[in-house]
Amino acid sequence: MNFIFDNDRPIYIQLVEQLKEYIVAGKFKAGEKLPSVREFAMQIKVNPNTVQKALAEIENQKLIYTERTNGKFVTENEKLIENVKKELADQKVQKYFQDMNKLGINKEDAITYLQGK
C-alpha cells in the first residue's frame, strides 16, 4: 500500500484521507488487523505520533476499533463502510461539478459531457 504525502498540508489529515480511501476500496478489508503504530510509521516514514493521531481520528469515525492488547482492526460494519464510501464519492462528484463550473460548464452539461466519455 502506497501513501503519498504533500508537505504543504497537515500530514495527519492526508493520512486520514488516504486510509479512509483504502478502507472503502477494500484494500484494508473489514475486520483486518492494522499494523502497529510504530510499524506503520516506519513503513510510511512519518512520525509515530502523526500515525497515532490519524488512527484516533478514524477510530472516532468508527471505521476502526481497538481490541485491548490486540491492536487495531478495520470495522466489520460493512454498512458503515458503504456509507463512508458514498460520502467520499459524493465529495468527488461535488468537486467535479465545481471544477467544471470554473470552466463555465453548468451541471447539466457536465453530466452530458461525462456520459460522452
Binding site: D8, P10, I11, Y12, I13, K45, V46
Partner: peptide, 29 residues
Amino acid sequence: ERILDEVIFIDKGKIILTSPADELRNKEN
C-alpha cells in the same frame, strides 16, 4: 519534516518560533 512532531526555529541565537509541525502547515498552508 515528515518525521517531526514539533519545530523550533532559531535565528541569531534566539528562538523565534516553536509549534507543532502540522499546526504550522495548517496555519500557513
